[in-house]
Design a protein around this nucleic acid. Structure first.
Lengths: 228, 228
DNA sequence: CGTGCGCTTGACTTTTTTCAATAAAGGTGG
DNA sequence: CCACCTTTATTGAAAAAAGTCAAGCGCACG
């Protein structure tokens, strides 16, 4: 694996070129086609995957087949490290949503790296802390907000990362969004329709959504008001 | 703070006596009475708390006042470290359920310690990974299981940690258990009654619950069967 | 000795899911 | 380039799950 690729990964920030090269030396490359399972829940974790290209969804499945997406990962993010640090088994499924590339580092080598390079360990701690924060929000959403509130919060979240324009593009299918929000496509569809009727949003072509009333959405998200 | 106390904390396993003494030197002691807020959501995190005695609940609050308990911490566990590693603000409330004692280490010193002692960093990574796993389960429970399934899973969990006897003691009020399971006391009460009527459990005095049919509960938890 | 908390139960409402039908969109192979 | 077939999305009607509101009991603690 090339040293330049390693240098672009947030986890390895704070290392110099020689250290990047050392990482490159223990890493191999892995690819996945669209739809491919990168790892399955319960499987033994032999190493860590760092996504360099593409997108990967990590999700749980219920016995009845309902899916809950835990997170959609993008380039630069490590996937499935939890299993490396605790328990050894993957806690969920990971599937490539697009053709993807990974940097793969065997468990042993990665642990040694962490021990040798405090900067990497600290970066990893920051990453896990971030993820914990996200899960905290997810639990809050699932338990304390109804679906309209969750959706409003998600739209506001998209609004702040895609820049200030009021037109948003969903980066996944509505079924996937439903799964991320802990509901089903039918319910999501109905609530989008209600939001549109109430003037909060306008549904555009395909995955476009125009936010007509960000303040109103914010109130929905924070529970200050409810959808009629 | 005494060195012996430090030595008992899982986070500091793998250090020798001198290193334990060094930790003790930068740590101070903090106490909280029952009901005291240890930190509030949104407050700035200046250091890390490690619980040495007592119990602390960490929870989110909805605008309407509904509470979702994220976790109940016991002795030896670090609390609120997420805020030290990312974001700087506490993501939730922490309240002492009993008179409690903490080891408190200021942010700066703790970060330096992590950098200097890879063993501590690795222990912390393991701790965060564990916590991530728990949250994964929590999200799964909230999204993919109904309340009877969540309750059954929780009872089975208690069954395996309190030893093999079939009589379980809840270590919290039923209202708190409801909050932990993402529901309300009324619903919990009804479902316990249904489980008793169906012969899965027997409700004893106070917080005692006898598990009459662990296999049946296991099936409820895994979605293989449903409560009548 | 009373006040309050913890817990339970009933009746009712709201939210979400389930099931079913349909329509539009998109990719693939002929 | 088009026909076909799968995926994606929407909508209605009915059912199920959980929450709200209200009332009541018993026990502990001040």
């Amino acid at each position: 694996m090339t040293e330049e690729t390693v240098a672009t990964i947030p986890l390895f920030q704070g290392l110099d070129a020689a250290q990047h090269a050392a990482v490159a030396a223990i890493a191999s490359e892995k690819t996945a086609v669209r739809g491919q399972i990168v790892f399955a829940e319960g499987a033994q974790a032999e190493g860590i995957h760092i996504l360099t290209e593409g997108r990967v969804k990590v999700y749980k499945l219920s016995p009845e087949g309902k899916e809950q997406i835990l997170h959609v990962f993008g380039p630069g993010e490590p996937v499935g490290e939890v299993a490396v640090f605790a328990g050894r088994k993957y806690p969920a499924y990971a599937e490539a949503l697009e053709p993807s590339r990974f940097l793969y580092i065997p468990r042993r080598e990665f642990m040694a790296l962490l021990q040798r390079e405090p900067a990497v360990a600290l970066n990893m701690l920051a990453e896990l802390a971030h993820r914990l924060r996200r899960f905290t929000n997810m639990v809050e959403n699932l338990s304390l907000r109804e679906v309209p509130g969750r959706l409003a919060a998600y739209l506001m979240y998209l609004n702040e990362r895609q820049d200030a324009r009021a037109e948003i593009q969903l980066d996944m299918t509505k079924a996937q969004l439903a799964s991320l929000l802990g509901t089903i496509p039918e319910t999501l569809s109905r609530i989008l329709a209600r939001m549109a009727k109430e003037g909060f949003i306008e549904l555009g072509e395909g995955r476009a959504i125009k936010l007509l009333d960000p303040e109103g959405l914010q109130q929905l998200a924070s529970g200050e008001s409810k959808l009629a």
